[in-house]
């Protein structure tokens, strides 16, 4: 009895999360993995153990095309989020002298996260459309003589929309990493005669790499699994891997194929996670 009352808190503390992870994470993955070896058979699919679905993934060019396109779009979104997000985070952490302004600017980046993703993606439709805000603006200042249809329903529109939507996930970790850099390191570098730019390249940037890696990972993985942007602002060549998975589970009623594709996506995402984990560890300040 006494043994139980002593052990109970420990069991609860460890047991509940373990149970949670098993039931809501590991078990679903196991089910998906099992399905991926089944066979499509009209009207549905039947239990089996064969690698045909995986084989199709690697031999039918439609899957590699979509995977490569998804990789490309994800990398572009991460890259643009970095190019826009880093200077902003740097300004917030080092240059912005007013605490109030800093709070406001930081909130301005975070606030859109409270607005529905769908709504924000829709807004981009009205901005980029043929009769949209961007076209009207470019025509009013005389850059365009007639509306252009090159802004919407293509991969450009998807990258713009996804960059806008996921950029907070780049700014937040970079800002956190920059904040943690002791200011005296930068001052010491200046005292020893390094000019601001070399100081940035040799002190600030390397120390902020863990934040950049975290931001890259998050924006990349979020984009990799997105299926709404292709649907709303993507064009005929906008299908991403998540759309194909949706089709396999829905329209095609081919859960085995959808599962195999999901497992492949999982492997890619886990690879990215472990790579970025290594980068983070490599650049993290060493304990002396």
């Amino acid at each position: 009895m006494r043994f139980l009352s002593e052990k109970l808190p420990g069991v609860a503390v460890l047991g509940i999360p373990l149970l949670w992870i098993s039931v809501f994470m590991l078990l679903p993955y196991a089910i998906i993995a099992t399905y991926s070896f089944w066979t499509k058979q009209y009207p549905t699919f039947s239990p089996d153990f064969q690698f045909g679905n995986y084989l199709t993934l690697f031999t039918d060019p439609q899957y590699s095309k979509v995977l490569i396109r998804t990789l490309k779009v994800s990398l572009l979104v991460s890259l643009f989020s970095f190019l826009l997000g880093y200077p902003f985070a740097y300004f917030l952490a080092f240059r912005c002298k007013s605490q109030a302004l800093r709070t406001w600017l930081y909130m301005a980046v975070i606030a859109p996260l409270w607005v529905s993703y769908l709504l924000r993606a829709y807004v981009w439709k009205t901005i980029l459309g043929t009769e949209g805000v961007l076209n009207s603006f470019l025509m009013s200042i005389g850059i365009l003589s007639e509306p252009s249809d090159m802004f919407l329903y293509n991969q450009f529109a998807m990258v713009v929309t996804l960059t806008y939507i996921f950029i907070p996930f780049m700014v937040m970790p970079i800002y956190t990493a920059l904040e943690k850099i002791p200011r005296n390191l930068v001052e010491a570098s200046a005292d020893l005669g390094l000019r601001p730019i070399p100081t940035f390249l040799r002190i600030t940037l390397p120390l902020s790499i863990p934040g950049v890696a975290a931001g890259f990972t998050m924006t990349f993985c979020l984009t990799f699994g997105d299926f709404v942007a292709p649907f709303l602002v993507g064009g005929p060549d906008g299908n991403l891997v998540a759309n194909v998975i949706v089709t396999q589970f829905g329209t095609a009623l081919n859960w085995p194929m959808g599962s195999a594709l999901s497992i492949l996506v999982l492997v890619i995402v886990l690879t990215v996670l472990s790579l970025s984990g290594r980068v983070e560890r490599h650049y993290s300040p060493k304990e002396v």
Partner: peptide
């Protein structure tokens, strides 16, 4: 389309994948 459905859908999916 019965069991031919897959052939139709696969063709359409591969158009979209291009």
């Amino acid at each position: 389309l019965g069991d031919r459905f897959e052939a139709y859908l696969n063709a359409w999916n591969s158009v979209k994948a291009q």
